[in-house]
Design a protein around this nucleic acid. Structure first.
Lengths: 236, 236, 236, 236
DNA sequence: CATGAATGAGGTTTCATTCAT
DNA sequence: GATGAATGAAACCTCATTCAT
């Protein structure tokens, strides 16, 4: 969950700052006083992300998170209110970060094929670097997005990305180099799919086919393959 | 989990028939008793599949399975020994059935593009009809295939399918109509991915993009898209 | 809580038979099979009544109740669902029993003064024999009847008693021997008060006045006094 | 708990001024600091009285008291040492104030019936104005006066009142207008009872009889009734 | 005087599993 | 074959209390 730390959230401490955590730009208090609370909170969040990713919501143990984070179990409730609150915080953070990274891509002004290739590669690389996002999403999807469904903070999520894709597709089509009539959402889904599934199902696939996936060598192969599949589909 | 019932496993009723269940042809007990036992067992298995799919291994409740199946809780232990035993049985059954269905496809003698299109469509349709397999696989992958890893009964799994794919690819390449140098495993993964991911992540995608996926209309669109993506990639 | 056992409730077992417990006249199953469940449930209820009476809802310990009842802690949840459920059950039972006892009085056809004297004495004696009802009521009243408020099963409670009192008052007034214009509800409250308060506040009163209340000798005095206060008030 | 503030106790602020608080005349610190400390202490005490009255000792939450009083939780420990210490302080204060108010009555030289009527009315009015004293006493009595029992400061409590009552009774008896042989303690108990019980059990009574008690109209009725009951009993 | 962060003991509740019939 | 009752371990969570500043 390394990348997570790069998301800029205002330092938070005190009990249960649940709603719109990052919304209020708090005045900067003296460094030292803050540090502990902020760091404790961050450490809990990091430990929780790992635990929830590996075991799912039901399988995760609050005790394990407390221990892994080096914090007292009570602190988890002090900062997040409940196991569920912690889970939601982890989920929102992971999601928010992914969105932020996508936003930072700025594909709009690239040549269409170049832009889309960049997106495919970004997706692949992102999953390499943030493996827990896959497990977290898997867990959520298994329970029909029970927790994300309740979160207001991720309503607008990728909307922008699909619009960006749409613009690229239109430009490419106008230029005559790109297939017409492509549904940008389904394209986005396929772009995600060819990377996501490779990672998410690596364990069972490796076992089933007796070929260890997820290794650097295999990843390189897969990354290239993913780009080819998507670009081949888009060529006019 | 309707299709599951068509898999022919030997009826089992004594306690703990864990290993190699179907291997030994059990002595034939009086018809009626057998039927009841078999039916109880089947009902437990079906209820368990639903529960495990929805909640994962840790989140699933033995009580809930007992109630849903109409069986006494004790029976679960009588037939499957433990929650873990039940989970393994569910997993193996789902896997075995998927394999059996794939085997029944007989793509070998089809024209390469036709064969591959048929496979893409089969995958898609299979997930439509057997939604729980996706959740079960997700659960397994989240815990690094902890249970499947231990199962001997699924060693040879899809091996055959990849070989079939390889043959089709070679034939297509020789004929000059098909792209050369395609890795059949990665092709298989992509074929699975474009359908699987659409279903597995339908909940979060629907929420994120504000477009309800999984509906008949949307499914039809997706199925067509999936075929196009794969075939476009393969065209020489 | 001895008297409680005389209340006739249908034997109940199995998990969480919360609503209208006593309403359905269950068919009488074989004695032996029932016994344990019924007895366990009764023992938990008795232990809980004692614990809740002494410590209040918040102060009571589920562990203590389990131990005192000789039952496993889990059984409490099996039969009553939660600490709150158990508390409600205790409360309803105590209340229902008091109502049943009052109903059994049959004061209607007595000479008015005799009838009212009998009621005063009954109230006094009931508190002597069922001390926990006082603590339970105290606890409820401290929290503004939070739990009783939610219980449907005690709506009609004493209604009948006040009507009985009203009839006696009217008869006495017509005969010229009894004070006119007495509000039967406030009379009932006073009848309860002169006994209840003596018991409910015995501890602090004893301490404050340095005279041990609640002893047999003192009780005899108090009982006589209570009767005199009420009857003197009613004489024309 | 407004009346409480009128009790004159020496302002206290150092840590743990538990025993005989008011006995030692503390050195006078600078006015302002003193005022703040005193005010914080008073606010905590007031909030605590409300919380303990409503929830009992076990049900009360130190956090809730801190929040309601606007003070930091640490301050509670600074001033009162522990939850128990705070509870005792609340109890003693409430008790001391009631005693002080009773002392201020000066019934000794009144005509006996007038004096006793005044006492009945005083009791009633006191409970109207100090509702929390009832809950606090209830709580104490539920746990057999566990805390009051330990307090030295309330040994002599009402002793004087009973003596006053005794004097009035004797005077009335000598004058021939008043019943002879009345036990002044039991009279005092009855006087308390007819008001106390009405308030202490208002919640359950209101629910049970479907008539809202504690309203101004109902209170007026009750007050009159209480006086009548006691005076009728005393008439020769 | 005051505060936010931290703690550990203990409380309620849940769960897979087994016993007795 | 089947059932309801029972169990103990462990899970989540709460609370009074203390530490560091």
């Amino acid at each position: 969950m390394q990348l997570m730390d790069e998301v800029v959230t205002q330092p938070r401490f005190g009990p249960l700052p649940r709603k719109d955590e990052a919304a209020i730009p708090a005045p900067q208090p003296p460094k030292q006083a803050l540090r502990d609370a902020e760091r404790t909170r961050a450490r809990i969040l990091a430990a929780a992300a790992a635990e929830f990713a590996q075991k799912g919501f039901a399988g995760a143990r609050v005790d394990a998170i407390a221990e892994a984070s080096g914090a007292n179990k009570r602190m988890i409730y002090y900062y997040f209110g409940s196991k569920e609150g912690l889970y939601t915080a982890v989920l929102e953070r992971a999601y928010a970060e992914m969105r932020a990274s996508e936003r930072a891509l700025e594909l709009d002004h690239l040549e269409p094929f170049v832009g889309i290739q960049k997106l495919v590669e970004f997706k692949f690389d992102y999953f390499v670097e943030n493996p827990s996002i896959i497990s977290l999403l898997n867990g959520e999807n298994m329970q029909d997005a029970a927790y994300l469904r309740r979160s207001d903070r991720m309503a607008d999520m990728h909307a922008s990305l699909v619009q960006t894709l749409d613009a690229l597709l239109k430009r490419g089509a106008r230029a005559g180099s790109m297939r017409r009539g492509v549904d940008p959402l389904h394209l986005y889904i396929s772009i995600s799919a060819v990377s996501y599934f490779y990672f998410s199902n690596a364990s069972t696939l490796s076992k089933a086919f007796g070929r260890e996936l997820g290794t650097p060598v295999e990843n390189k192969l897969r990354r290239k393959h993913a780009v080819e599949v998507i670009l081949a589909y888009l060529r006019a």
